[in-house]
Nucleic acid binder design. Structure first.
Length: 326
RNA sequence: GCGCCGGUCGUAUAGCGGCAAUUACAGGAGACUGUAAAUCUCCCGACCGUUGGUCUACGCUGGUUCGAGUCCAGCCCGGCGCA
């Protein structure tokens, strides 16, 4: 395709936790004059360092890294925030004439930034959510059915979080319909799912201007398990992960918030509150982190464009990138 | 040696005459439309023609019964108590 030539190249490095993505991204950045854009839903927060396995200054080896420490953990960062920031960073890096390398394990964020998932432009409505969260899944599902039959057909009717969000969107659409019904053209009353995004064409143009090279990096299950376990011990003994969690709580990060952050912070908070012993926490974390790695893989497996490698296959990776014109 | 309690799907647990057998964890597969390290679903004895069928199974061996993980007897193993 002739238009492919005009498209700007960008590398995306994905893979489960502990597969060795970050180091590879640094290597690639050094080789191709690139800058790394992190794609990690927890590393965006300031102060969440050891527990998230955030790359250190030294490990960056002078390669610029973006979208780390861009939010405070007390506030909620979302996929929509990530989408905006990541696109701005990509443009910035292109402007410098360098190669953007997105690297991270949060598939949903990457796909939002690159237009593989569409995020409706309806901001969260905390008051509404608070009310809806009291209802059971069947109740929420029944409500959604009255608001948007089409959406109710495809949604997971057991998942309260998804149902609340779908209702939030449906109500926002309904409000707009009422507004346009009183002034706008009569046929704009009914807005079906998927609702058109205001800046849809703009986003599409952005995504179309990119030539994304998808690079996946993973390990056989047994090896991944072992790496997760070893890394966990290092975080505790060497990097003082427990102390980090204690400090975060002292500085005002609530147990509830830590609980909602998941994995290390969730079980660290349970240990620090005395709900479990240190040994129980470590054992639980080993399996939970591995389960998380599997969930990540489930997400990535859907993207058939990803070319998979083992971390040791440096040569094959470089050959592939060369073949892609880098 | 005697007495009591217990041996069930990888582990832990339920079951007290109709059971391929509860629940949890682990294991496997998957979903994902501004919480995504979150949230949610399914499978998990074997085999087959898989909204069904067959076989093998609750420490072992017999017995009672139309029918036994469940009742009885003996044996083996583990825990506790008395020696």
């Amino acid at each position: 395709m002739r238009s492919e030539r005009k498209k700007k190249k960008i590398i995306v490095v994905v893979g489960p936790t502990a597969s060795g993505k970050s180091a590879l991204a640094v290597t690639l950045a050094r080789k191709f004059c690139g800058e790394v854009i992190s794609a990690d839903s927890r590393q965006v927060y300031k102060g969440l360092n050891v527990g998230t396995g955030k790359i250190t200054k030294k490990e960056m080896r002078r390669v610029p890294h973006h979208l780390l420490d861009v939010a405070y953990p007390k506030k909620q960062f979302t996929a929509a925030d990530y989408e905006k920031l990541a696109r701005a960073k990509i443009s910035e890096i292109f402007a410098r004439g360098r190669l953007p390398i997105i690297c991270g394990g949060t598939g949903h964020y990457i796909d939002a930034a690159l237009g593989r998932v569409q995020i409706p432009d309806v901001p969260p409505n905390p008051a509404l959510r608070k009310k809806l969260e009291k209802k059971s899944a069947p109740e929420l599902f029944a409500l959604l059915k009255t608001l948007n039959k089409h959406r109710a057909e495809t949604i997971d009717s057991h998942n309260p979080r998804r149902l609340v969000r779908a209702i939030e969107i449906a109500l926002a659409d309904a409000d707009k319909s009422v507004l346009s019904a009183s002034g706008g053209p009569p046929h704009s009353i009914r807005i079906e799912w998927p609702r058109p995004h205001p800046s849809f064409s703009e986003r599409l143009a952005f995504v179309r201007s990119l030539n994304v090279v998808w690079l996946g990096i993973t390990l056989p299950p047994a090896e991944l398990k072992k790496k997760i376990s070893m890394r966990l011990f290092a975080r505790i003994r060497r990097y003082k992960m427990i102390e980090e969690a204690r400090r975060l709580h002292k500085r005002g990060l609530s147990w509830k918030r830590m609980e909602s952050l998941g994995l290390e912070y969730r079980y660290l908070s349970r240990y620090l509150r005395g709900y479990m012993t240190k040994v129980e926490m470590i054992e639980k974390l080993q399996t939970e982190i591995y389960l998380y790695a599997k969930r990540q893989m489930t997400w990535f497996k859907r993207n058939k464009e990803i070319q998979w490698f083992l971390p040791s296959q440096k040569k094959q990776i470089f050959d592939m990138l060369e073949h892609e014109g880098l």
